[in-house]
Design a protein around this nucleic acid. Structure first.
Length: 636
RNA sequence: GCGCCGUUGGUCCAGUGGUAGGACAUAGCCUUCCCAAGGCUAGAGCCCGGGUUCAAUUCCCGGACGGCGCACCA
C-alpha cells in the first residue's frame, strides 16, 4: 500500500502552485446537473484545499489536535460535524462490507506485542536507516547504499553504528551527486510507535501500523467460530498508527487514522466469487499496461469485462472493486474524479498476485483511498511459522482417500542400547525410508537387514526390529492454508474526499452560497427545524416539531437565531439536506391566504433551495423516506 | 528529516520598536411571515522560549505548527 499515486500525479500534472489562489474552485458548470438550479446560478464544484480546511475548522468537521499547546503534526480531532459524518460513513461501510456480505466484525487492540510484528514483517520492514548527503542534501536509505556498493546483502539487519563504519570503510558516496558520505550520521527510524507493555522495558509493544494483523493473529479462533468452513470474511474498523516523517496535506497524510478492512479467507482451489451482482458495474480503470504505455489512459469498463479480458487477474479482487465502487458513490465521491489503478509490477509486495488501488482526484492530485490485494497465504503462513498455533484449516475430501502406506514402528528398547544418542535420528530416518522406498525393507525380507544414513554414518539393523508393514490408510482430508483477499479502505481519506467532492458554491438571490451536497444518508444532520421568527408561539411549535422528529430517530438541529436566510445558510454549509420552517400558516394564522393550508410547514431542499408545504403530521414519515432515499423531493 | 516561505480575535486579512484595526462570523435587543437585509450594543487576538532594547506583536536566534519543493511512505 503506497501513496505512489500522489507522487505520480504531482509529477505528471505539474506542480500545483498552491496556497495563494484564494477563491474557491476550478471547474465551472456542473456535470451531472440533472437538478433544477436557481435562476442565474453558476455552480462551482470542488473546493481548494485551503477553503476546505478553513470550512472544516470553522464548522466543526476536523481540526488539528492540541492547538492550545502549539498543535501536533499529523493528528486531527473530528469536531461535532466531522465525528457524525465519520460515524455515518463507517455505518454505511459496515452495512455494505460486513452485513450485506454476511461477514463478521471484530475489534482488536491497537497495541500488540513485538512478536506479532516480527512475524508480520513490520519490525524489519518499517525500520529504515537514512543517511543524508552533506553536499546536495538528499536522503538515502543507508542500507541500500551499502548493499548496492559492497558484497553485503543484508545491511538492513546491521546496527546503525556498523552501517556508519561500513560507509566510512568503503568510502561510499552519494548516489545523487557523488559527494562522500563518510562521517555522516545514519539516522534510524521506525514507522511504528513503540511503547512498553507493563513496567520496565522487557516487554516491548507497538501501536499497530495496520488493523489487519489484529485479525490474522486470531485466525485459529476465528476459523473455529466459522466452524472451519471456507470462505469466511472478518472485518474491522479501527485506528492504525504510523510515525510518518512528514505528515502533509491535512487529513490525507496523518499519523493516526482509521482503517476499514475486510480479510476474506478462501480456499484458493475451490472458492470463486459470484460476479453476478457486480458484473455490470462500470468504473474507470487504469491498468498497469496503460500506465506504462506512452499514450495510455484510464478507460471505462464493466467489472465483468475486466475479468473476461483478463485485466483483473483475480475474480475476488474484481468483485470487491465492484462493491467498493458502489460504496464510494453512495457516500458522495464524485465518479468523474475516481478510478481504480493497478499496481505496477515493481510496486506491489512480492506475495501479492494482483493489487489495485481506489483513487480519487483531490486538489488536482490523485490520492489513494484504498487498496485491494490478493495476499495469498503470506500472512497466515508467517504466523503459522512464528507462533505456536496452527493457522490452517482442515479440508475434507469429497471421498476419503484410501492408500497403501508403508509404516515402521521401531523398537526403541532395541535402538536405544544399540545406537545410543543417535537412536531417535535413526528411527526418523527409518520412517523416512519406509515412506520413500519401501522396497528397501521388502527386498531384505523378514530376516534381512536394512541400513540408513544419519549424519554421514551408516546404521544397520534387522528388519524385524523395525516392525515394517504396509497398511491401508484412509485420509478424509488435508490441512490447507487459506488465501486472503483484502479490501482495505482509509476512512479519513474517504471523508476528506467526500467533503472535497461535495463542496458547491453558487448564488441565490444575488447572495453567494456555499454548501455541501452530501448524500442524505451520511449528512451529519438530516433536518434543521426553524420558527420563521421566535415569537407569537412559533418557537414553541417549532420546538414541538423538532422534538417529535428527534423521537422518530432523525438527526435534528433546532435554530431560532437571526434571519431565516442566515439559518438556511448555516445548514447548507454543513450539508444538512432538509430544513423545516414553522410559520403563521402552521398555526392557522396565515395573513395572506395564498400560502397553504393551516397546519402545514415548509420543507426546503438544500441543493435547489426549493420549498414544498406539507402537513406537519406527515413530517416524520416524509423526512425519513427522504433520508432513506425512498422518496425524492420532487415527488412531494 | 533538509531547504524556502509563513504564523495577528472563531475565520480571513491589514498594521506597528511605545501591546493593535477591519471584514465576515458569534451573542443580546429592535425590525422583518422564507434565503447570510437593516439599526443599536457586546465579547473575543499579536504561536512558544531566549536575546537585543528604557520598551519587542514588530528586530535577532531557537523551537512548535502550517504551505510548497526534496526525501520517506514496508
Amino acid at each position: 500500500m503506497t501513496d505512489d499515486a500522489e507522487r505520480r500525479a504531482s509529477s505528471t500534472e505539474g506542480s500545483d502552485a498552491e496556497g495563494a489562489s484564494g477563491g474557491a474552485a476550478s471547474s465551472e458548470g456542473s456535470s451531472n446537473g440533472e437538478r433544477e438550479q436557481p435562476e442565474g446560478a453558476t455552480r462551482e464544484r470542488d473546493a481548494d484545499g485551503q477553503t476546505l480546511v478553513e470550512l472544516a475548522k470553522r464548522r466543526g468537521f476536523f481540526l488539528q489536535s492540541a492547538g492550545a499547546y502549539g498543535g501536533v503534526s499529523g493528528f486531527y480531532t473530528f469536531g461535532p460535524q466531522g465525528a457524525a459524518l465519520k460515524q455515518a460513513i463507517e455505518d454505511t461501510w459496515r452495512d455494505r462490507f460486513t452485513i450485506r456480505e454476511g461477514n463478521v466484525e471484530v475489534d482488536a487492540p491497537t497495541v500488540m506485542p513485538e512478536a506479532v510484528f516480527e512475524a508480520s514483517g513490520h519490525l524489519d520492514g518499517f525500520d529504515d536507516m537514512l543517511v543524508e548527503c552533506p553536499e546536495c542534501g538528499e536522503s538515502h536509505r543507508a542500507d541500500h547504499v551499502v548493499e548496492d556498493n559492497t558484497d553485503l546483502e543484508d545491511a538492513e539487519a546491521l546496527p546503525v553504528e556498523e552501517v556508519e563504519e561500513l560507509i566510512a570503510e568503503y568510502e561510499l558516496v552519494c548516489p545523487n551527486c557523488g559527494a562522500g558520505l563518510a562521517g555522516q550520521a545514519v539516522e534510524d527510524f521506525n514507522l511504528m510507535f513503540a511503547t512498553n507493555i507493563g513496567p520496565g522495558d522487557s516487554s516491548p509493544g507497538y501501536l499497530r501500523p495496520e488493523t489487519a494483523q489484529g485479525i490474522f493473529v486470531e485466525f485459529p479462533q476465528l476459523a473455529e467460530y466459522a466452524r472451519n468452513q471456507l470462505p469466511f470474511g472478518v472485518t474491522q474498523i479501527g485506528r492504525a498508527y504510523r510515525n510518518e516523517i512528514s505528515p502533509r496535506k491535512s487529513l490525507l497524510r496523518v499519523r493516526e487514522f482509521t482503517q476499514a478492512e475486510l480479510e476474506l479467507f478462501i480456499d484458493p482451489e475451490e472458492d470463486e466469487p459470484d460476479l453476478g451482482p457486480v458484473a455490470d458495474v462500470t468504473a474507470p480503470f487504469y491498468p498497469a499496461t496503460e500506465q506504462e504505455a506512452d499514450d495510455g489512459d484510464p478507460y471505462e469498463a464493466t467489472i465483468g469485462e475486466m475479468v473476461e479480458d483478463g485485466v483483473i487477474a483475480k475474480p475476488w479482487i474484481a468483485y470487491y472493486l465492484g462493491v467498493a465502487k458502489e460504496w464510494y458513490e453512495r457516500i458522495g465521491v464524485d465518479m468523474d474524479r475516481f478510478r481504480f489503478r493497478q499496481h505496477l509490477s515493481g510496486e506491489r509486495a512480492h506475495y501479492a498476485a494482483d493489487c489495485w488501488d481506489a483513487e480519487a482526484e483531490v486538489d488536482g492530485d490523485w490520492i489513494e483511498l484504498g487498496g485491494f490485494a490478493y495476499r495469498s497465504d503470506y500472512d497466515l503462513s508467517k504466523h503459522d511459522e512464528y507462533s505456536d498455533d496452527d493457522f490452517t484449516v482442515f479440508k475434507q475430501y469429497d471421498e476419503p482417500i484410501t492408500t497403501e502406506k508403508a509404516l515402521v514402528d521401531p523398537d526403541m528398547s532395541y535402538l536405544g542400547p544399540e545406537f545410543g544418542g543417535a537412536a531417535q535420528d535413526v528411527a526418523d530416518a527409518l520412517a523416512d525410508l519406509a515412506d520413500r522406498n519401501p522396497a528397501a525393507f521388502e527386498e531384505a525380507g523378514e530376516d534381512g537387514e536394512v541400513s540408513v544414513e544419519v549424519d554421514g554414518e551408516e546404521y544397520t539393523l534387522p528388519v524385524s526390529q523395525t516392525d515394517f508393514r504396509v497398511e491401508e490408510v484412509t485420509e478424509s482430508g488435508e490441512h490447507i492454508t487459506p488465501h486472503v483477499v483484502e479490501p482495505s479502505l482509509g476512512i479519513d481519506r474517504a471523508l476528506y474526499t467526500v467533503l472535497d467532492h461535495t463542496y458547491r458554491a453558487d448564488e441565490v438571490d444575488g447572495e453567494e452560497r456555499a454548501f455541501l451536497e452530501l448524500p442524505a444518508e451520511v449528512a451529519p444532520t438530516t433536518v434543521g427545524v426553524f420558527p420563521l421568527m421566535d415569537k407569537d408561539g412559533l418557537g414553541e411549535k417549532a420546538q414541538d416539531v423538532a422534538r417529535e422528529l428527534r423521537e422518530a430517530g432523525l438527526s435534528v438541529t433546532y435554530d431560532d437565531a437571526g434571519a431565516i436566510g442566515r439559518r438556511y445558510r448555516r445548514q447548507d454549509e454543513v450539508g444538512t439536506p432538509f430544513c423545516v420552517t414553522v410559520d403563521y400558516t402552521t398555526l392557522g394564522e396565515g395573513r395572506d391566504d395564498e400560502d397553504g393550508e393551516p397546519g402545514t410547514v415548509t420543507v426546503r431542499e438544500r441543493d435547489t433551495t426549493a420549498q414544498q408545504r406539507i402537513p406537519a403530521e406527515d413530517l416524520v414519515e416524509t423526512l425519513t423516506a427522504l433520508r432513506d432515499g425512498d422518496l425524492s423531493f420532487d415527488d412531494l
